[in-house]
């Protein structure tokens, strides 16, 4: 854990800067102070995740619950297809991979959309006079004082065929029949984009605010064009903000099920609704739900580790 590594490093620095007695006193103080943090991480992160991993290897009890017998049945169900009656030769099961793939590209598309709109927005805000930046940021956050469920339902009201959007466009003569956005993937995209845009804007804003604009001027003096400056100077400089924003949007979009259910019509499972289904119905399958969550978490971790390694390489350059 990152938290556990810190005090050791700090304690190790102690003897070099002061006397040994001071270092011991420091350690005596630091350990008890860290206990609450460790307890919180252990209780609310490590324990639930460990429980989920363990449950994914247990035997399903009919109508919810588990029996404590080790099995790989949940993972087998995810990856292996033996036909409806279980008597066909095993082959790769595409059902759940299809569901995961749908969630992944929806999340990736929403991330790109957020980046395309969020980056210029963040740039605009960060380049306003210092006094008015606060107001702009405040305006960005206002909608997020309202619960996500209510905002998603409201979006449904706006987008529906006889909602205000279609009625306004019809009245203006822009369209002759309703757009038919509701219950489509486009509506899901709009919902995800609207829900998670600030998570893109805020980290990029923080990076742009620290950006030294004299770098752009220097590049321009050296005859770099606008695109060259953006590509070679600006984006590398604010890259950590962009990466953070992309992760903050992509990860929650991957597990989202409010927007797909309420705006997309729930015609197809997403990862979130697939997992939900395993724990809700009387036919529930807890180990399979846990296995889906473990597979999802493994994928997210892989993305984060790849990003961290890329960042390390970038820093080493």
């Amino acid at each position: 854990m990152a938290g556990a590594g810190q005090p050791g490093a700090a304690g190790g620095a102690g003897p070099a800067s002061g006397s040994g007695a001071e270092a011991v006193g420091y350690r005596r103080l630091v350990v008890p102070l860290l206990v609450p943090a460790w307890a919180v991480v252990g209780l609310f992160m490590v324990l639930p995740v460990a429980l989920m991993v363990v449950y994914s290897f247990l035997t399903r009890e009919f109508r919810g619950g588990v029996t404590w017998e080790f099995t790989l049945a949940a993972y087998d169900q995810f990856f292996v297809n033996r036909g409806l009656f279980g008597d066909e030769p095993p082959r790769l099961e595409w059902t759940y991979i299809t569901i995961f793939w749908r969630s992944i590209w929806q999340a990736a598309l929403a991330t790109l959309l957020c980046l395309a709109i969020g980056f210029p927005t963040a740039w605009f805000i960060a380049t306003r006079p210092r006094a008015s930046r606060g107001v702009w940021l405040f305006l960005i956050t206002i909608p997020y004082w309202v619960n996500l469920l209510i905002r998603t339902v409201s979006l449904r009201f706006i987008l529906r065929d006889n909602g205000p959007l279609n009625e306004a466009l019809l009245a203006l003569g822009v369209i002759s029949k309703p757009l038919g956005i509701i219950n489509t993937d486009l509506a899901v995209q709009l919902g995800l984009f609207y829900s998670y845009l600030p998570f893109m804007v805020l980290p990029i804003y923080a990076a742009v605010e620290r950006y030294d604009h004299r770098l752009s001027e220097a590049a321009a003096d050296l005859h770099a064009g606008r695109w060259t400056i953006l590509r070679e100077i600006v984006i590398p400089a604010i890259r950590p903000g962009i990466v953070a924003g992309c992760i903050l949007v992509f990860v929650p979009c991957l597990g989202a099920f409010l927007a797909p259910d309420l705006l997309g019509g729930a015609r197809n499972f997403m990862i979130g609704s697939l997992i939900d289904e395993q724990f809700r119905g009387s036919q529930g399958n807890w180990p399979f739900g846990a296995a889906c969550a473990v597979i999802l978490m493994t994928m997210v971790l892989a993305v984060l580790i790849a990003q961290a390694r890329a960042a390390l390489r970038g820093a080493g350059r």
Partner: peptide, 21 residues
């Protein structure tokens, strides 16, 4: 049949009929 269905929803079952969705 699913090809002809616009949405799956239990909580919204009444709302979509009233609104005309």
């Amino acid at each position: 049949a699913k090809a002809h269905w616009a949405s799956f929803g239990s909580d919204i079952a009444k709302d979509v009929l009233v609104s005309g969705d």
